[in-house]
Amino acid sequence: MPKQPAFPGLRDAMKKKQTRRELFLSEMNVVVPWGRLLGLIEPHYPKTGRKGGRPAMPLETMLRVYFLQNWYALSDPMAEETLYDSEAMRRFAGIELGDDRIPDETTILNFRHLLEQKGLTEAIFADVNAHLADKGITLRSGTLVDVSRRTPSVRVSLRKIIDAPSSTKNKEKTRDPEMSSIKKGNDWYFGMKAHVGVDSRNGLVHSLETTTARVHDSQVWDGLLHGDETSVWADKGYVNAERAAEFAGPGKFWGVMRKAPVGGELHPLDDRINRLIAKVRAKVEHPFRVIKRQFGHVGTRYRGLAKNRAQLFTLFALGNLFMVRRKLVA
Rank of each mutant, 00 (worst) to 15 (best):
S75T: 13
G142Q: 11
T82C: 06
D134Q: 06
D199A: 08
K17F: 12
S218C: 03
E229G: 06
L132W: 01
V262C: 05
G227P: 14
R258A: 13
A241Q: 15
I182H: 14
G98V: 07
A126M: 06
L144S: 09
G319L: 00
A241I: 14
S157V: 07
L139K: 07
F313W: 13
T61R: 14
E105G: 03
I291R: 02
L63K: 13
D176Y: 07
R214K: 03
Y72W: 12
V298L: 04
G191C: 03
E22T: 10
R293W: 08
Y66M: 14
Q294N: 07
E105S: 11
K3M: 03
L139F: 01
N70D: 11
G263D: 06
G119I: 00
P177G: 04
F313C: 01
S180Y: 09
A317Y: 04
K292I: 09
D176F: 08
V239R: 11
G98P: 09
A306V: 09
A93D: 11
G142A: 13
S153P: 02
W71C: 02
T314K: 00
V232M: 03
W71S: 02
E246P: 00
P2H: 05
M1H: 12
L37H: 06
V329S: 12
G304I: 05
Q18E: 12
G185A: 10
L97W: 04
A330G: 14
D228Y: 00
F190C: 12
A6Q: 04
G35E: 14
P58I: 15
L224T: 05
Y84K: 09
H216K: 05
K173E: 03
P103N: 09
A260G: 04
F125S: 00
P58N: 15
V30P: 05
H195A: 13
L225A: 04
D271V: 07
G191D: 06
E80K: 12
H44Y: 15
L208S: 03
Y238H: 15
P5M: 11
G255R: 03
F67I: 01
E116S: 02
L318Q: 04
H44W: 14
Q69L: 03
G255Y: 01
D127V: 03
G264W: 02
M14W: 08
T82Y: 07
